[in-house]
């Protein structure tokens, strides 16, 4: 099992990046073994449909859940259709967010929290 967290840096002590499409890093982590991999978000400079692209990237990584701050409607649609659960976290480290996720303390995002970006 693997989950993804949007992160401002490449370590577990980094803060959760509240932006989804334009976050700095993704941390892919196995919540039980805490084994993780940090991947830089290469789509931040991409001006067309960053949300859709990043969502596609997350889907292709085969994660079962995503922890982030805000998600727009397009990205959320891609994630939902793939059966990925999306959880909200803000002002906490990636480590803390994952702990809260395990304890079931994060709120699920079921509606978009930012408006659509058309470009």
């Amino acid at each position: 099992m693997k989950i993804a967290v949007t992160s401002a840096g490449s370590s577990l002590d980094s803060m959760v990046d509240e932006r989804f499409g334009r976050c700095r890093f993704f941390i892919f982590i196995n919540p039980e073994s805490k084994e993780y991999e940090a991947v830089e978000n290469i789509y931040t400079g991409d001006v067309h449909g960053a949300g859709v692209q990043v969502a596609q990237f997350i889907v292709d990584k085969g994660v079962s859940a995503l922890i982030t701050g805000n998600v727009g409607p397009n990205a959320l649609r891609v994630l939902k259709e793939s059966g990925i659960e999306v959880y909200a976290a803000s002002s906490m480290s990636v480590k803390k967010a994952v702990e809260n996720y395990i304890k079931g303390k994060l709120t699920k995002i079921s509606n978009p929290t930012t408006p659509s970006r058309h470009n």
């Binding site: 334009r22 001006v47 067309h48 970006r117 058309h118 470009n119």
Partner: peptide, 12 residues
């Protein structure tokens, strides 16, 4: 074209 994209860059 693409003034919308440049706006996104400025805002970011």
């Amino acid at each position: 074209e693409n003034s919308g994209k440049l706006v996104s860059v400025v805002k970011k």
